[in-house]
Nucleic acid binder design. Structure first.
Lengths: 146, 146
DNA sequence: GCTTGATTGTTGCCAATGCAACCGTTACAA
DNA sequence: TTGTAACGGTTGCATTGGCAACAATCAAGC
């Protein structure tokens, strides 16, 4: 056996997964139950609602999603009338995606839900620890982007 | 619009998912590539390797996995000769799962890999921030268990 | 202009996941 | 003892997700 024993409970990827899954599941009840929406669909809506019109490739880069999932989510959201595709002047391959008015209503409701849930999580941790957590997570993500 | 605008980039579940997915993917290369193993299979092995013989239900509780996934992982690991099922004296429904010698070899290799990867992540963050992160994640998980 | 390589988005296919229903066993209470 | 609920584990089925291959478009060099 090597010098150090493996400590599963302190293994960062394991802890990250556990935390992401528990909080994710808890929040998913908000959109799965009410709107029967996929995690990827919610992410697409969140990006469009938060940052305005954007192409699918741009969502992929920002949200770190597979283009397959984004493509299918866009299709589904369009079928529901929550999203429209527009042309991009400079590039005929790309599509400018944006929310319809009813899509925006859904986004607003979910964003309000998200704000509440985030506040709950931060209350559970205490504001100082929550801020440190967010900062460390951001650092992890950007460090891995190399 | 409500008093506060929704801040996607600071939304804890979003950050948690991003961090978990990037680090998870990075580490998954270690077991997917070398041993063609599923995330759930790796978790089952990790628990058995770390904590010794255990029933499937116990793994579910500790790892927060669905019993379906654990059941299929156990089957797959048994087929590969990395795991054996034993009887539990007091309960004829349950099975005591444990690693075979060759299963332990695989576990040892992966655990060493995990130790290296964890050290890399902690180096990226700095030890103080890493410790704070682990502590906050643990708190989040146990708070959600209510 | 033409060719080559990268990029945008879609589709087919297979692996992985989750839910619900199920069987056998156990615990417990009337 | 017998009936009922809970628990451990498996299986079927539908959904989700990712990879690879593809058509269309763009960009850059010759």
């Amino acid at each position: 056996m090597a010098g150090t024993e493996f400590d599963l409970e302190g293994f960062l990827p394991y802890l990250l997964n556990q935390a992401a899954e528990t909080t994710g599941r808890e929040f998913a009840a908000a959109y799965r139950g009410r709107y029967a929406m996929t995690r990827t669909q919610w992410r697409v809506m969140a990006h469009l609602g938060r940052f305005g019109a954007m192409t699918a490739a741009e969502i992929c880069r920002r949200a770190m999603e597979e283009k397959t999932g984004v493509s299918r989510s866009v299709q589904a959201l369009e079928d529901r009338g929550w999203l429209i595709r527009g042309a991009v002047a400079e590039d005929r391959r790309a599509e400018a995606l944006s929310l319809t008015p009813s899509g925006r209503e859904v986004y607003d409701a979910l964003a309000a839900e998200a704000i509440r849930f985030d506040a709950l999580l931060r209350a559970r941790l205490g504001e100082a620890r929550a801020a440190g957590l967010a900062e460390a997570l951001t650092a992890l993500v950007s460090a891995a982007r190399d």
